[in-house]
Design a protein around this nucleic acid. Structure first.
Length: 813
DNA sequence: CAGTGAGCGAGCTTCCGCTTGACTT
């Protein structure tokens, strides 16, 4: 137990763990005939399997499956009054692993703790040491950065002690995250909604998305005119397209400029050729793999990780949760060989990439194929595609630069200072581009790039064919995708490779963020063109701001974010994690005591928690007062209700006489932006539109959006119609449409067997029988002419087969 | 599939980082 109290560097060096080294048996002693019992413990079972092959039969290699001990999941488990002492327990799902390891350790001569060489890995070794009740004399701590025979044998020859400073840095990290998460979350349960959560990583992830959405809302596009001219070269046929070297501010400027051009002479004023180079991107880390797999293959972050895990378990790639650019000497060698064999010497270049964070200890390699020469793998189509991506990126990073030539032609306009400029890029030597080109999520990739320019001569006079000035607008900031959010988190040093995908899942699960589409708006823009002697103006429309599969904050996300921003700036600061990391590094260096670091934080943090609870004693977070109801004079406000954002007239706390009225906000409305008038309209629902066929037609909003009720049946109102202003005629049309759809749904029924029907569904005709649905094969059947026997035969056939495999959606709690 | 929301209030929820399976609803 004294191990987790303040241990200074000196104490470590000459203390408890030094004994482990002091009492080491010489290695040679281990090689005796009956002393083959070495137990090596690593973190991952796949790694265990590989290493066991390298070490031979004297070594048994087992896996701890990550951490084996943690703070109790149900309670704070940090004694904030007594030195922040953590209470660790072995979680239920780890009991079996611990049992196995304990039994094996008992009968082993020497136990080698071989968890990763980073903060978490060091802590895993220490927990193993404690939980398994290991003895200093026969326990050794070893580390290796790559899984190769030489690296592992070298590690075995150079064991060290457990680094308690590093362990303490991990304990500080763990305790801090627990305190932040478990002190903030309960405030949200009370003030906003049960089961919500806040934390050092997830709350900042939500903040990024909220901030971005606000920047988008506040963005005002600024127009300007982009001017492009077409010139005819002296040969009379070839066209040179060039853009004016500045944008024109407004129509007046455009007209003035085009008028001046009518009589101007255009001359080739300058031609420059500049060689440029492009270098390959470094090999993949978790976050860059996630980005490229999203851009090139369309995989979600979690999909990429699931597929990569399969490849890793099959021994095809190295570990997929890493932030290291490092490649083993072996990998560098085989990459070289592959490139020389396939592309030749000209294409090879040795490169070493350095991991960005300087203090980082490289626990793993970059993500690469285990055997780089291996171009074809067995597996699913998805696995093959991801493998190819990884392989190409790995090979490309050891290839020569691409050499390009950039040509710029400038055309002077008689008597003016502006120039028309055409630029093009030609690949002189493709180098790494032959294998891999990095993708970009920049939507305005310039179309004028990468084009071959026609041959022109200096001082040549050109004939102007036409000039077109098109109104363009500055672009709003882009919404985050899963992958671009991960990239931003990594840039800020927030989160780890193993948590990027789960963090996104958490903020989605809590309802802070949704992944979805946004419809664009139409915008008109002006085009002013000069052709021959005439200047013409026209206008066109374009759709702007449309988005697919982007992350957007919900009302709950915004309300929670604003609350956290108001009271817990320290934790919400984009630099908070980076600052914490500095402290953790100091602890790892033995310069700081971990409990003192935590105390420094807690003394600032905890009072803000108390303050937030006190101030918000009888006020819920996120309520916004809109004004008073003109009819009753009662207050109208919006807030987060049990079922999401809602509006309310009257307050039960001040008004004991009458029950308040409630109305759910409609899709697209937000607590932040809704006006009093818009909110009051919501209370007009449900509204009776009139009668149809002697029955009332009512419009309302339910759990699944706006609907019309008539004769006990419901019809959804499509997005194109506004439920607040829908007319009786429109409603009747919808009811009739639904009826014809219903009729078409029933293709065929059978008198003999009323339980069996042939129906028309979203995916075409199918058989419905006793509550289950059965597919009708595409060929060989005409649904309208099928007999009952044929149908029953298909049902029987389907029953015989095992149920179609279903994808596991999510573990339900 | 479909109009919910207080009131009296038990007992529950939650963090971040390591790592893989196991439920077939």
């Amino acid at each position: 137990m004294y191990l987790c109290t303040n241990v200074r560097k000196e104490k470590i060096r000459f203390g408890y763990f030094e004994d482990i080294l002091v009492h080491l048996h010489p290695i040679s002693n281990l090689e005796g005939a009956n002393m083959q019992k070495n137990l090596v413990i690593v973190e991952s079972p796949a790694k265990a399997k590989t290493i066991e092959k390298f070490l031979g039969k004297d070594f048994h290699v087992l896996s701890s499956y990550g951490h084996i001990r943690d703070l109790n999941a149900k309670t704070l488990s940090v004694d904030v009054e007594h030195g922040y002492a953590p209470q660790y327990v072995v979680p239920a799902d780890k009991e079996k692993v611990v049992e196995t390891l304990q039994a094996e350790a008992k009968s082993a001569e020497v136990i080698w703790l071989a968890s990763d060489e980073d903060r978490e890995g060091e802590a895993i070794s220490w927990h193993l040491y404690e939980v398994l009740g290991l003895k200093p004399e026969n326990t050794r701590r070893i580390v290796f950065h790559e899984i190769t025979k030489t690296a592992i044998l070298h590690a075995i020859e150079t064991p060290r002690a457990i680094d308690m400073n590093l362990v303490n840095a991990q304990q500080a990290r763990r305790v801090l995250d627990r305190i932040v998460g478990f002190e903030l979350s309960p405030i949200l349960w009370k003030k906003v909604r049960p089961s919500l959560s806040a934390g050092r990583v997830q709350s900042v992830a939500v903040r990024l998305i909220v901030d971005r959405e606000r920047a988008i809302n506040e963005f005002v596009p600024e127009p300007s005119f982009r001017v492009i001219a077409n010139f005819i070269l002296p040969d009379g046929t070839t066209i040179l397209k060039a853009e004016l070297d500045r944008r024109l501010k407004n129509k007046e400027e455009v007209y003035a400029f085009l008028k001046a051009c009518q009589s101007a002479t255009f001359t080739i004023e300058n031609i420059t050729r500049k060689p440029t180079r492009r270098s390959p991107a470094p090999p993949f880390t978790t976050s860059t793999l996630q980005q490229e797999a999203a851009l090139k293959l369309g995989y979600s972050v979690s999909q990429t990780m699931r597929i990569a895990q399969m490849l890793y378990e099959s021994g095809l790639i190295t570990y997929m949760r890493t932030d290291s650019f490092n490649l083993s000497d072996l990998a560098l060698g085989t990459a070289k060989e592959t490139i020389l064999n396939t592309y030749g010497e000209k294409y090879y270049k040795f490169r070493q990439y350095h991991t960005k964070n300087k203090g980082a200890q490289e626990a793993h390699e970059a993500i690469r194929p285990t055997y780089i020469a291996n171009a074809e793998i067995k597996g699913t189509e998805q696995e093959k595609r991801l493998y190819n991506l990884i392989r190409k990126r790995t090979i490309a990073c050891q290839m020569a630069d691409a050499e390009l030539e950039r040509t710029t032609i400038s055309v002077s306009i008689g008597g003016m200072t502006e120039r028309f400029v055409a630029s093009g890029e030609v690949v002189v030597f493709d180098g790494f581009l032959q294998v891999y080109k990095e993708s970009t999520d920049d939507e305005n990739e310039n179309e004028t790039e990468n084009k071959l320019l026609p041959r022109v001569n200096l001082h040549e006079e050109l004939r102007m064919q036409g000039i077109v000035a098109t109104e363009r607008f500055t672009q709003r900031p882009a919404r985050y995708t899963e992958a671009s959010l991960v990239r931003q988190l990594e840039n800020l040093g927030i989160g780890r490779p193993s948590t990027y995908a789960p963090t996104i899942q958490t903020v989605l699960n809590r309802g802070y963020v949704v992944k979805g589409d946004k419809e664009g708006k139409e915008r008109t823009y002006a085009i002013i063109s000069l052709s021959g002697d005439t200047i013409q103006e026209s206008s066109k429309t374009e759709i702007i701001g449309a988005d697919r599969n982007k992350l957007m904050p919900t009302d709950i996300g915004i309300v929670v974010n604003d609350f956290l921003m108001e009271y817990f700036q320290l934790v919400m600061d984009y630099n908070f994690t980076a600052n914490v990391e500095k402290e953790l590094d100091a602890i790892a260096e033995g310069e700081e005591d971990w409990t003192k670091v935590i105390d420094g934080f807690y003394k600032i943090f905890h009072p803000t928690v108390e303050e937030a609870i006190a101030i918000h004693k009888d006020h819920r977070i996120g309520e916004r007062m809109l004004g008073n109801d003109p009819k009753s004079g009662k207050p109208v406000f919006v807030k987060i209700g049990r079922f999401g954002p809602m509006a309310q007239i009257g307050d039960s706390k001040t008004d004991k006489e009458e029950k308040p009225q409630f109305a759910t906000l409609m899709k697209g409305q937000s607590i932040e932006t809704i006006t009093l008038d818009e909110a009051l309209k919501l209370f007009e629902l449900p509204r009776t539109l009139g009668e149809f066929e002697g029955k009332t037609v009512v419009v309302g909003v339910g759990r699944f959006g706006p609907f019309i009720r008539h004769d006990g049946k419901f019809v959804s109102i499509p997005k194109t119609l506004n439920p607040l202003s829908i007319s009786l005629d429109e409603a009747v049309t919808l009811i009739q449409e639904k009826r014809t759809q219903e009729e078409q749904r029933h293709i065929k029924t059978f008198e003999e067997e009323p339980e069996l029907e042939i129906l028309n569904g979203r995916f075409g005709p199918y058989i419905a029988y006793k509550g289950k649905n059965y597919k009708i094969p595409k060929s060989g059947y005409t649904p309208t002419e099928m007999t009952l026997e044929e149908c029953l035969a298909l049902v029987k056939e389907a029953e015989g087969k095992p149920a179609t495999k279903r994808r596991v959606v999510r573990k339900k709690k």
